[in-house]
């Protein structure tokens, strides 16, 4: 394989198509959004080209600050929950029989085919008082009376973790399958119990994969706006919910754009920070 850097313009040929796609579908819409975020809003859902900072100024209030904080906290919590459940699950999956692996992977892939709406309504039924899981607990004698578990923060967390879990497993799976099984055996011969071997060898050896998974689930969860509305109270609504609300129901495009730009910037900053921290740890 040729390894030297491209010399002539033609050598960059293979990059034209992806670069074009990226420009058309990401750079242009994002630039438009940045532009709109500085526009002047007018009555009746219209806006005028201008350069005003009102939209950002309005955003810098306690209310929106709290919503932003909650959104980030929720996304981080979902990312951590997915990884904490996903690593042991995928580890055991990668060590089980081929047939069992295929069965689980197919089941997880089929979750991906469910839309957010279906997941939301399925969980709201499961968490309801009349037809929910608590009826099962009552029947088992664990509870005295069925009760509604939604709307609540727990319900939002559960459904979002459920939704992001297949992605988590699919990202972790190849790395765990490739991990040399003799590494844990070596750790055991050196005096580590299987659990200790898992935490001192498997987890650290997969540090980069775990970091990448955390970031992926974090970004994925940040965009969720249906599940918080279906399963949460208004205080559990994320910034994405407010953006949708402003853009579609309040017809305030410039303000929605300003919030979206801000969200993207904060996300990028956090991801950058995480990558930087990961790099530092590696260098140490």
């Amino acid at each position: 394989m040729r390894r030297e850097p491209p010399q002539r313009l033609g050598d960059y040929g293979p990059l034209f198509f992806p670069a074009g796609m990226l420009t058309v579908f990401f750079v242009v819409p994002f630039a438009t959004m940045i532009a709109v975020s500085f526009f002047q809003r007018e009555q009746g859902g219209f806006y005028q080209p201008a350069f005003v900072l009102d939209n950002y100024a309005r955003f810098l209030s306690l209310f929106f600050g709290r919503v932003l904080g909650f959104s980030l906290m929720l996304a981080i919590a979902v990312a951590i929950a997915c990884v904490v459940i996903g690593i042991p699950f995928t580890y055991l999956l990668s060590r089980s029989k081929r047939k069992i692996q295929i069965l689980w992977l197919v089941a997880l892939l089929s979750i991906l085919s469910l839309s957010e709406v279906m997941i939301g309504f399925a969980w709201s039924t499961l968490f309801s008082r009349t037809a929910g899981l608590t009826n099962l607990f009552v029947w088992l004698g664990l509870m005295t009376q069925p009760q509604a578990l939604t709307p609540s923060f727990g319900a939002v967390m559960t459904a979002m973790t459920y939704q992001a879990f297949p992605y988590t497993v699919l990202v972790l799976y190849p790395a765990l399958v490739r991990l040399d099984p003799t590494l844990t055996e070596a750790a055991r011969t050196l005096g580590a119990s299987p659990v200790k071997a898992f935490f001192t060898v498997v987890v650290p050896a997969l540090r980069n994969t775990i970091l990448a998974t955390l970031i992926m689930v974090f970004i994925f969860a940040l965009g969720s706006y249906l599940l918080p509305q279906l399963l949460g109270r208004p205080q559990h609504w994320t910034l994405s919910v407010l953006i949708t609300d402003q853009a579609i129901y309040q017809s305030n495009m410039p303000f929605a754009a300003a919030m979206a730009v801000f969200l993207v910037l904060v996300t990028l900053a956090l991801v950058g920070l995480a990558l930087y921290a990961g790099r530092q740890k590696e260098a140490a």
Binding site: E185, A186, R188, T189, L190, G191, A192, S193, P194, A197
Partner: peptide, 10 residues
């Protein structure tokens, strides 16, 4: 294994 006090080279 981890209680056998052995050394192994794979």
């Amino acid at each position: 294994t981890h209680k056998r006090e052995l050394g192994m080279v794979f």
